[in-house]
Write a protein that binds this DNA or RNA. Structure first.
Length: 349
DNA sequence: AAGCGCACCAACCGCCGGTAC
DNA sequence: AGTACCGGCGGTTGGTGCGCT
């Protein structure tokens, strides 16, 4: 990790040893010192609050208007890779691992395209995971089983790493991929902002309130989620249960000590189906900031129409912009035929 | 306990394509 | 057509944490 830039905002112009970059801004002739290195919690909070209240726009404007001494690129990166509410943090599941391997075999090092098919995961995260773990594992696998595959998993070329990879079962794949099928419009984000604007007392981001509380865990996340949704009119106030059009979300019943449930895949589109499949609520304590309440759980929220938490915020997995997936030069019809390897996989195209 | 090496991963860098002027 | 700016992407760097000796 980069050297922490603990220079506070009141220290920006001192001769600190922390990294700054002097640039000429285009809007005026004055020079601005731009911070580099690790983001401080204060910077994160500024960016989050700005994004929530103002929404996404020109990143350089965001950097300027949010009061951040950062370049727009840096803000974009921070938001996409770390601050987006829909991020799923923590270890990759075996199913995710296998999906990454398979997608990499098809797409090569097109991390953004791979990430578009893994809800809550970023291209950077997948890239790091690949380079640090999967690449080695596959290499070892190939070394141990040279007859099964002559391929070299180091290659970035598509279709070169599938040797020895066991196909996952249909249910697992559907579980993994259903979230990515949700729409990515920003309308709900705008709606949320509009609702927020209706009250003077709203906390534009209640999730921030204990985002550094390492003990809060999943229960805290859900409490905050409920509070957030309540504020924006998506939840009933009576019982603390988030209902609305998004199914039921009961923070008090989803504490760390107990699993919470969601219906099996075949019934997730039908809220009336009460059969459940347990999901582990995991917490991941790591470095100073990894336990924001946005990202300390592997959280799935039952919905009535296959819309998951991301839609409550208006962020899909497409880089948080409601950006439609772009396949570029790929012939995706052909690609999907390749994906028939996974019989019921319903990728978002 | 100290030193070392490795793994992890946040963040930077440079390039590219799209767009506006 | 040329230029500048911006966003997006993939590759790379380097600090931190952890396990091993």
């Amino acid at each position: 990790m980069r050297k922490p830039d603990i220079m506070g905002k009141d220290k920006l112009n001192t001769s600190s040893s922390t990294t700054t970059t002097t640039i000429n801004t285009t809007n005026n002739s004055t020079k601005s010192k731009l911070r580099k290195g690790l983001w401080s919690p204060e910077e994160d909070e500024k960016l989050i609050r700005y994004m929530i209240t103002k929404g996404q726009g020109c990143w350089s404007d965001i950097a300027r208007n949010a009061g951040l001494q950062r370049c727009g690129k840096s803000c974009r990166l921070r938001w996409i890779n770390y601050l987006r509410p829909d991020l799923k943090r923590g270890a990759f599941s075996p199913q995710e691992e296998e999906l990454i391997i398979h997608l990499h075999s098809i797409l090569g090092n097109r991390w953004s395209q791979i990430a578009a098919r893994l809800p809550g995961r970023t291209d950077n995260e997948i890239k790091n995971f690949w380079n640090s773990t999967l690449k080695k594992r596959l290499k070892m696998s190939n070394n141990n089983n040279t007859t099964s595959s002559p391929n070299n998993s180091d290659s970035s070329d598509p279709r070169d790493v599938m040797g020895g990879i066991m196909p996952m079962n249909e249910h697992d794949l559907m579980t993994m991929c259903m979230d990515s099928s949700s729409s990515t419009s920003s309308s709900s984000m705008h709606s949320m902002q509009a609702n927020m604007a209706l009250t003077d007392q709203f906390d534009p981001f209640p999730l921030l309130s204990n985002r550094y509380d390492m003990t809060t865990g999943a229960a805290g996340f859900l409490d905050n989620m409920a509070a957030c949704l309540t504020q924006v009119g998506m939840a009933d106030h009576d019982d603390g249960v988030v209902h609305g059009d998004y199914g039921a979300l009961e923070p008090n019943k989803m504490g760390l000590e107990s699993d919470f449930s969601l219906p099996p895949l075949e019934s997730r589109s039908n809220i009336e189906d009460n059969s459940t499949t347990p999901i582990d609520v995991k917490t991941h304590n790591n470095n100073h900031f990894k336990n924001s309440c946005f990202n300390n759980t592997d959280l799935h929220i039952q919905t009535s129409n296959n819309v998951v938490a991301e839609d409550m915020f208006g962020f899909g997995n497409h880089h948080g912009q409601g950006e439609n997936f772009r396949m570029g030069e790929w012939d995706f019809e052909g690609l999907m035929q390749d994906m028939s390897y996974f019989p019921s996989l319903d990728f978002q195209v």
